[in-house]
Nucleic acid binder design. Structure first.
Lengths: 199, 199
DNA sequence: CGCTCAATCTTGACAGTGGCTAGATTATTC
DNA sequence: GAATAATCTAGCCACTGTCAAGATTGAGCG
């Protein structure tokens, strides 16, 4: 329980994670400051050290949170999609892109930063779960054509690269034609391109 | 001409660009320090200000240098490839990936950082040249099937996303099966995946 | 209930950063 | 050769992350 004016906040770790996400969204990964996070949480600049080893420790925890929501974003798309394997894979790709566009700085923290400690157990577990989901979704598409339950490594990598490429380019505002569209049209076009590439 | 021990170095701007690249390669974009660059160049910490507005100005110039070499990396691959349009496009993709793996920090600076000023004329021109090359290479593949000289926007974006996805994932060491291979095998597998995706 | 001890948080310090100003040195131009 | 502009240095400031020391609080235990 958060009590103003007292030494012990009761749940500072969670508050710092929220504040960290806000800082990330507001100032981006390159402007991220631990003191800024502490200020947002209404706490002294040295308080975070009791909950995270250092600034990279906080960023590591934030990346882990990101990977869990990343999977949820894909599942949300898949719930409203057709149930055939290809539609489900395309939906996962759209969820991948949704996440990148909704959380630009967090996405970069997860995929394009050396600051999170990838050896961290929490982060490794969260990222591994996302990777397992990818493998499962690809396997579902290919189990008809293949006798083995494990899909071809090449097909997994190819699928990942395609989804990731769109997500990362959208994240850095590089696909101008898509940026100019309304969301519904953009989704339709992305779905077409994913379907054509993944099939 | 660089004269040691004298005030005027004669070509400090070029020296700073080299030093900046070294700093980038050594400490990564997140550890990049203007003072570190000045030290590498053997000059005081405030000297760079006379050649670049600020640290982001130096990073902007470095990104522009990067885009020019980025195109060269693709052309180098294309020279040693078959001349049919698809092989040429695949070769460009391999050059894209080559560059990312050879210049990890620079690649991130170019594609996944907010620090370079994208409104800068020099950077904009260099990035636009790379984009024009992409459009031409895609057009060459589709001019047989299409009457127009401008290729479909969707095909351009799709091609870009595929190459970029592989490059960015390789850059952040995420495609484990490929990382374990020797270069020749990796190239062959990447070429296969690109060919299958782009066709 | 009261005491002790560990956990939590604050304050103050330090080195490192980018950017500014003032001044020293050198190149250029007339 | 003198004046002016360009270049570079040195010193300062605000900000950063981290560390050490001390203040405050909660939890466990008698």
């Amino acid at each position: 329980m958060r009590r103003v004016g007292s030494y012990h906040h009761g749940d500072l770790r969670a508050v710092l994670l929220q504040a960290g996400e806000a800082e990330l969204a507001a100032r981006g990964i390159e402007g991220f400051s631990l003191r800024g996070v502490a200020k947002r949480a209404g706490v002294s600049h040295a308080a975070p050290a009791h909950h995270f080893r250092d600034v990279n420790g906080l960023l590591t925890a934030l990346a882990a949170v990101g990977f869990r929501r990343f999977v949820q974003s894909q599942e949300a798309r898949q719930k409203r999609a057709e149930t055939d394997a290809l539609s489900q894979l395309v939906a996962a790709g759209l969820g991948y892109i949704d996440f990148a566009m909704a959380n630009p700085a967090l996405f970069r923290l997860m995929f394009s930063s050396d600051r999170p400690d990838r050896e961290s157990e929490e982060l490794h577990a969260a990222a591994a779960a996302a990777h397992r989901k990818l493998i499962e979704d690809v396997a579902r598409l290919h189990e008809a054509h293949s006798s083995r339950s494990e899909p071809d490594q090449a097909e997994v990598m190819r699928t990942w690269a395609i989804a990731h490429g769109f997500a990362d380019l959208m994240n850095s505002k590089r696909l101008k034609p898509l940026l100019a569209m309304r969301k519904a049209d953009r989704d339709a076009m992305l779905a077409d391109m994913l379907r054509r590439s993944l099939d």
